[in-house]
Amino acid sequence: MAAVIQAQAFTKDQCTAGLRAAVNILEKWQATTEQACNILRISRSTHVRAKLPNDAWSVSLDADQMQRISFILNIHAALRLLFDNPENVYGFPSMANHNEFFNGRSPLEVMAQGDMISLYESFRRIDSLRGAQW
Rank of each mutant, 00 (worst) to 15 (best):
residue 3 A to W: 01
residue 6 Q to T: 11
residue 8 Q to I: 14
residue 8 Q to W: 05
residue 8 Q to V: 14
residue 9 A to Y: 03
residue 9 A to G: 08
residue 9 A to Q: 14
residue 12 K to A: 13
residue 13 D to P: 00
residue 14 Q to F: 04
residue 16 T to H: 09
residue 20 R to Q: 14
residue 20 R to I: 00
residue 23 V to M: 05
residue 24 N to K: 13
residue 25 I to T: 05
residue 26 L to T: 01
residue 39 I to C: 08
residue 39 I to Y: 05
residue 42 I to M: 08
residue 43 S to L: 01
residue 46 T to I: 05
residue 48 V to H: 13
residue 50 A to L: 07
residue 50 A to G: 11
residue 51 K to G: 11
residue 53 P to V: 02
residue 54 N to W: 01
residue 58 S to W: 05
residue 59 V to P: 02
residue 63 A to R: 08
residue 64 D to H: 12
residue 66 M to F: 09
residue 69 I to F: 02
residue 70 S to K: 10
residue 72 I to S: 10
residue 72 I to H: 06
residue 75 I to H: 04
residue 76 H to N: 15
residue 78 A to Q: 07
residue 79 L to W: 10
residue 82 L to C: 13
residue 84 D to S: 14
residue 86 P to D: 15
residue 87 E to N: 14
residue 87 E to V: 02
residue 90 Y to V: 00
residue 93 P to F: 07
residue 96 A to I: 04
residue 98 H to E: 12
residue 101 F to S: 04
residue 107 P to D: 11
residue 114 G to P: 02
residue 114 G to E: 08
residue 120 Y to Q: 14
residue 121 E to Q: 13
residue 122 S to P: 00
residue 125 R to K: 14
residue 128 S to I: 02
residue 130 R to C: 08
residue 130 R to G: 13
residue 131 G to R: 09
residue 133 Q to S: 12
